[in-house]
C-alpha cells in the first residue's frame, strides 16, 4: 500500500514538472506560434544553474555556494531567461524556421557543455548532493515527498493562474493577433518581434523553473537526463492535451507521462533482457502512435478550444441595430 502511495507521489511530482514545461511550451507554441524544439536545453540550464548554486562543495567542479533554495530557484529562472534572450534576439526577427534551427542547436550545445565542461558541470559524472528544501524537518522519505508534491503543485497552480491571466489580458490578445497574421498585426501598430521575444523568454523561464525543481527533487543530475527525447515528450504532451489551452497542457502532461511510465514497466516485464536497452524506442513509438491518433481524431488535442480574449469579463453583445 505505501508502495503504491509513494509511487503515486513520485509520479505526480514528475507529472507536475512536465506540466510546467508544457505550460511554457504552450505559451510559446500555443499562443505565439514559436517552434521551440530545444525544450530540453532550457530545462537543463535551469537544472544545472540550480545545482551549481545550491550544492555544497564538491571535488572536481565549481560549486559549494550553498545558496538557499529560493535564491537558487530564482537564479535558475534568470539564467534560463538570459539564454532565451541570447537565442531569441537574433532569431525572432527572422523567418520562423531560424528559431527552430537555433533551438535545436541550443539543446545540443547545452548537452555538450554538460558533458564536457567538467569544471562547471561535473562532466559525465554530473552533480551530486543537490539539496532539497526543508528536508531536515522530515524523518521519512515518503513524508518529505508528499511535502515536495504539495510545494510543486502550489507552484504549478501559481504558474497556471498567472498564465491564464496574462494570455487573457490585452498583452495576450496582441500575442494572438501576431500569431494569426503578423502582417495585419503590424498594420494595426503591433510589432511582432518584441512580443515574440517576451513570450519566448517567459516560456523558457518556466522550463528553467521545471529544471531547477527537478534537480532539487532527484538530488543528482548528469547529462544523460537531458536527452532530446525529453523535448519530444513535452511536445507530445502539449499536442495530446490541446495546444493553446493551459489546462490541456497540464492534462496532456499527466496522460502522456502515465503512458510513458506504464509502457516503461511493460517493456521491463515482457522484453527479454537482451532487448531491454531498446525499450526506450518502444516507448517513443507508442507515444508517436498516440500522437498520430490524437491528431487524426482530435486535431486540436483533447481540450483544444479557446476562449475569448476579453479582459473586462464576458463580452456584452450589442443588440438592436
Amino acid at each position: 500500500m505505501t508502495g503504491i502511495v509513494s509511487y503515486l507521489v513520485f509520479f505526480s511530482i514528475l507529472a507536475s514538472i512536465y506540466s510546467l514545461m508544457s505550460l511554457g511550451l504552450n505559451l510559446q507554441w500555443g499562443y505565439t506560434g514559436l517552434f521551440n524544439i530545444g525544450v530540453v536545453g532550457f530545462f537543463a540550464v535551469g537544472a544545472y544553474t540550480f545545482a551549481i548554486l545550491a550544492s555544497p562543495p564538491a571535488a572536481g567542479h565549481i560549486g559549494g555556494f550553498n545558496w538557499p533554495f529560493l535564491a537558487a530557484l530564482i537564479a535558475a529562472m534568470i539564467a534560463t531567461g538570459i539564454v532565451a534572450l541570447i537565442v531569441g534576439i537574433p532569431t525572432l526577427r527572422l523567418r520562423e524556421d531560424y528559431l527552430a534551427i537555433a533551438t535545436i542547436g541550443i539543446g545540443a550545445t547545452i548537452q555538450l557543455i554538460a558533458n564536457n565542461m567538467n569544471w562547471l558541470t561535473g562532466g559525465p559524472n554530473g552533480i551530486y548532493n543537490i539539496p532539497q528544501p526543508l528536508s531536515a524537518y522530515f524523518s521519512s522519505n515518503l513524508g518529505y515527498n508528499v511535502f515536495f508534491l504539495v510545494m510543486i503543485v502550489v507552484i504549478l497552480l501559481l504558474a497556471y493562474w498567472s498564465l491564464e491571466r496574462i494570455v487573457h489580458s490585452p498583452w495576450g490578445r496582441v500575442l494572438m493577433a501576431i500569431r494569426e497574421d503578423e502582417t495585419a498585426a503590424s498594420s494595426v501598430g503591433k510589432s511582432g518581434f518584441s512580443y515574440r521575444l517576451q513570450s519566448f523568454v517567459i516560456g523558457s523561464i518556466l522550463m528553467g523553473l521545471a529544471g531547477a525543481l527537478y534537480a532539487s527533487f532527484i538530488k543528482y543530475i548528469s547529462p544523460t537526463l537531458f536527452m532530446p527525447v525529453l523535448t519530444f515528450q513535452v511536445w507530445a504532451m502539449l499536442i495530446v492535451g490541446g495546444s493553446g489551452n493551459n489546462r490541456g497542457a497540464i492534462l496532456g502532461s499527466v496522460l502522456v507521462w502515465a503512458l510513458w511510465t506504464m509502457s516503461g514497466s511493460v517493456v521491463q516485464a515482457i522484453l527479454p533482457s537482451t532487448l531491454q536497452v531498446k525499450g526506450g524506442a518502444f516507448q517513443i513509438i507508442l507515444i508517436g502512435l498516440v500522437l498520430m491518433l490524437v491528431l487524426l481524431f482530435r486535431p486540436r488535442g483533447i481540450m483544444g478550444s479557446r476562449k475569448a480574449v476579453v479582459f473586462a469579463g464576458e463580452s456584452k453583445t450589442v443588440s438592436g441595430e
Partner: peptide, 21 residues
C-alpha cells in the same frame, strides 16, 4: 486580413494604440 480565429470584438480591441495592458 482580419485575425480569423479571433472574434470581431477581439479584432477591434487589439487595435487601440499604446494600451496600458
Amino acid at each position: 486580413r482580419p485575425f480569423p480565429e479571433m472574434t470581431v470584438l477581439e479584432n477591434l480591441l487589439v487595435v487601440p494604440p499604446s494600451q496600458c495592458g
